[in-house]
Simulated assay, not measured.
Amino acid sequence: MPLEHDVNDVMLRTTRGGMHMRVIFIGAGEAFDEHTPNTSLLTLPDSYDADAVLLDCGFTAAAAFFRHAPPKLHADGLAAIYLTHLHGDHFLGLPWLLHRLGEDGRTKHLDILGPADTREVIPAASEIAYPGSFARLPFPVGFVEVSPSHDITLDRWRFRFAPSLHGQPNLAVRLERDDKILCYSGDGAPGPQSASLAHNADLLVQDSYFLEKDKDPDGASGHGSAEGSIELARKSGSRRLALVHIARCVRHGRREELMRLAESVKDVQVLIPQPGCVLTL
């Protein structure tokens, strides 16, 4: 299987039975990569019709959502949005997204999960972007504060959270539905708590800003590495690993080295997803 995907649907079946979870990579880039939208994931049950969860929505991810999400999700299909933290490349697409959902006829309640300040920050950002727009949304928005000490269940989605090593508090998430498990780091090198979320994940999606682990051995920069992500996938028993939030100088300037590293791993399937890639777990 190729490591970089331009196809619409790549079937990655686990050995376990049950229903499937689909993951669409809306974006896979870091904050300032002009070629690759900010890292954002759309998770769906077997059907593409509704009950989807969007993980992060940065500057460039909002437009990419409408480029890559199934059309049936463009109005009422989203059940919830989870923000790992409040850096712009993870949340500042929301004023754009909310406004467009309203224009597309959304009427269904939308839950936004995130850090404590989310309830104040999102309406304020919307007011700056489009004055009065948040108050005029034709659908209700609820805010749910998340913390490492409380798991959350929304419909059949189960969320668990843990802090990673990042400059601003960032909560990685373990998202489960039926017997499928997705673990997404948001930003940051894995800390002891966030690493534990990855246990037996069907898909681990990890901040891999650097190529080599020794570029940031203590996580002081607030970002992980491709080598560190591979190490975590092995230790956690994750079945597959997607490298995201790769520094633009690595993704575009050291692509061959990155590919060689990924291809050298035989015990974990390592993926370098492109925007629009769809994985079925």
Rank of each mutant, 00 (worst) to 15 (best):
M1C: 08
H5E: 12
V7Q: 10
L12W: 09
L12Y: 13
R13Q: 14
G17R: 10
G17M: 09
G18E: 11
I24S: 00
I24E: 06
I26H: 00
I26P: 02
F32I: 11
E34L: 15
T39D: 06
T39W: 04
S40C: 06
L42Q: 01
P45N: 07
D46L: 13
S47N: 09
Y48P: 11
D49L: 15
A50E: 09
D51T: 14
D51S: 11
L54N: 03
C57K: 01
F59E: 08
F59Q: 10
T60F: 01
H68A: 02
L73N: 06
A75I: 13
A75T: 09
G77M: 00
G77V: 02
L78V: 10
I81K: 03
Y82R: 14
T84N: 14
L86S: 03
G93Q: 02
L98R: 00
H99P: 03
R100V: 10
L101G: 05
L101R: 00
E103V: 12
D104T: 07
G105T: 10
G105N: 05
G105D: 08
R106Q: 05
T107G: 06
G114C: 09
G114I: 05
P115G: 06
V121A: 07
I122V: 15
P123I: 10
A124T: 10
A125W: 02
A125F: 02
S126M: 09
S126V: 05
G132D: 01
S133L: 10
A135W: 05
R136I: 13
L137W: 03
P138W: 04
F139R: 00
F139I: 11
F139G: 04
V141A: 04
V144S: 03
S147E: 11
H150S: 15
D151M: 12
D151A: 15
I152V: 14
L154A: 05
W157C: 12
W157R: 05
W157N: 03
R158F: 14
R158A: 10
F159L: 08
R160F: 06
P163H: 13
S164A: 14
H166S: 14
G167D: 13
P169Q: 13
A172Q: 07
V173Y: 02
V173Q: 04
L175Y: 08
E176N: 09
K180T: 07
L182N: 07
C183P: 02
S185R: 00
D187M: 15
D187Q: 15
P192L: 13
S194A: 14
S196A: 15
L197R: 07
A198H: 03
H199L: 14
H199C: 07
A201K: 11
L204H: 01
Q206F: 06
Y209M: 11
Y209N: 02
D214N: 14
K215A: 15
K215M: 09
D216Y: 01
P217N: 08
A220W: 04
A226K: 00
R234Y: 05
R234K: 08
K235H: 09
S236R: 02
S236W: 01
G237C: 12
S238D: 02
R240G: 01
L241M: 13
L241H: 01
A242S: 08
L243K: 04
V244E: 00
H245I: 11
A247H: 13
V250K: 01
R251T: 02
H252Q: 10
G253S: 12
G253I: 10
R254W: 05
R255E: 12
E256H: 10
L258K: 00
M259Q: 09
M259Y: 07
R260S: 13
L261P: 04
V265E: 00
Q269K: 14
V270E: 01
L271S: 05
V278E: 13
L279N: 03
